[in-house]
Amino acid sequence: AVSDRLIGRKSVVMEAISPQNSGLVKVDGETWRATSGTVLDVGEEVSVKAIEGVKLVVEKLE
């Protein structure tokens, strides 16, 4: 599936994300709604860990 190619990809937070609120990330020039178990600020680099419905699950790059 097209979405499977996103797992493991680097992306950049475009709208802040917290455990309570989804935000936005940009992956390969496309904007996606995303969630995370931690707070992520605009501009942080993250990695796509999973896809749940139409949202990406991301975490901060170490």
Rank of each mutant, 00 (worst) to 15 (best):
K10N: 08
L6R: 04
V42K: 07
L6I: 08
V25Q: 02
S36C: 07
P19C: 08
V2M: 13
G29T: 06
N21K: 15
K10M: 13
G23V: 02
E62H: 12
I17A: 02
V58C: 02
V42C: 09
G8Y: 00
R9E: 05
V12H: 06
G53P: 03
A50P: 01
S11G: 15
N21M: 13
V57W: 08
L6H: 04
L24D: 02
A16C: 11
S36G: 05
V39N: 13
L61I: 13
T31R: 08
I51R: 07
S3P: 14
R5D: 09
G8H: 04
R5T: 09
T38Y: 10
D41C: 14
V2D: 12
I7F: 02
A50K: 08
L24W: 12
G23F: 02
S18Q: 05
V12F: 06
G43S: 04
G53N: 05
V42Q: 06
L6K: 04
E59C: 06
P19Y: 03
I17F: 02
R33Q: 15
G23P: 00
V54D: 15
V46C: 15
S3F: 11
V13E: 03
V39W: 15
V58Q: 02
V12C: 11
D28L: 09
E52G: 04
E44L: 08
L61P: 07
V58I: 02
V39R: 10
K10V: 13
V39E: 11
K49Y: 05
V12M: 08
M14S: 07
E30L: 07
A50C: 09
E52T: 09
L56C: 03
D4T: 12
S18K: 06
A1L: 12
A16K: 14
E62W: 09
E52Y: 08
D28K: 01
V46P: 02
G53Q: 03
S11I: 08
M14V: 15
E62C: 12
T35C: 12
E30A: 07
I51W: 06
S3K: 11
E62G: 12
A16R: 15
G23Y: 08
N21V: 14
A1I: 12
I7H: 04
E59A: 10
E30H: 07
E45C: 15
V57G: 02
V13L: 02
G23C: 01
L56E: 03
V12N: 04
A16Q: 11
S47D: 06
A34E: 08
V27Y: 03
Q20K: 10
E59H: 06
L56Q: 03
S11T: 12
E15C: 10
L24A: 10
D28P: 00
D41M: 13
E15D: 06
V12A: 03
V13N: 01
V25F: 00
K10H: 11
T31Y: 15
V25D: 03
W32I: 10
A1V: 12
M14N: 04
S47V: 15
E62A: 12
D41Q: 13
V42P: 07
K49G: 04
S36I: 02
Q20F: 10
K55H: 15
G8W: 00
V54S: 14
S36Q: 01
K10S: 09
L56D: 04
E44R: 04
R5W: 08
S11V: 15
G23I: 01
E44W: 09
E59Y: 01
E44D: 10
K10E: 06
K60E: 04
V12R: 07
E52V: 13
D41Y: 13
V12G: 02
P19I: 05
E15G: 05
T38N: 10
G37C: 14
D28W: 05
R33A: 15
A1E: 11
K55G: 10
S36E: 05
E52Q: 12
G29Q: 07
Q20Y: 10
I7A: 04
L56V: 07
G53M: 03
D4F: 03
I17N: 02
L24V: 11
T35V: 14
K60A: 08
R9Q: 09
I17Y: 02
A16E: 07
V57Y: 08
R9G: 05
T35H: 05
S36Y: 00
G43E: 04
A50D: 07
A34V: 05
A16P: 10
P19E: 05
S11K: 01
G37N: 15
G8N: 06
V2W: 13
S3W: 08
G29S: 07
K49W: 01
E59V: 10
V2G: 12
D4L: 09
S47T: 15
E44I: 08
T31N: 11
G53A: 04
G37E: 14
S22L: 10
V39Q: 11
A1R: 12
Q20S: 12
T35P: 03
L24K: 11
D28A: 07
V54E: 15
A50M: 07
G43I: 01
S11A: 15
D4H: 14
G23K: 00
T38L: 08
E44P: 01
S22P: 14
S18C: 08
K10F: 07
T35G: 06
V42R: 06
D41N: 13
S3D: 10
K55R: 14
T35Q: 06
V46I: 05
E62F: 11
K49I: 15
N21R: 15
A1C: 14
E52M: 12
A16T: 10
L56W: 00
R33L: 15
D28F: 06
S18N: 08
L61M: 11
E45T: 13
S22Y: 07
S18F: 07
E44M: 12
V58E: 03
I17K: 01
D4V: 11
K55I: 15
P19K: 06
V42T: 05
V42E: 06
A34W: 00
P19G: 06
V39T: 12
A16M: 11
V46L: 01
V57S: 04
A50L: 06
R5Q: 09
I7Q: 04
A16W: 10
N21F: 12
G8T: 03
D4M: 10
S22R: 04
L40K: 01
P19N: 05
G43D: 05
G43R: 01
V58M: 00
V12W: 04
V48K: 01
S3G: 11
E45L: 14
S22C: 14
K26T: 11
I51P: 00
T38G: 09
V46H: 01
Q20M: 12
M14F: 09
L56G: 03
S47A: 11
L40N: 02
G43T: 02
I7W: 00
R33K: 12
I51L: 07
V12T: 09
V54N: 15
Q20T: 13
V42M: 06
S47Y: 15
E44N: 05
A34N: 06
I17V: 07
V48Y: 00
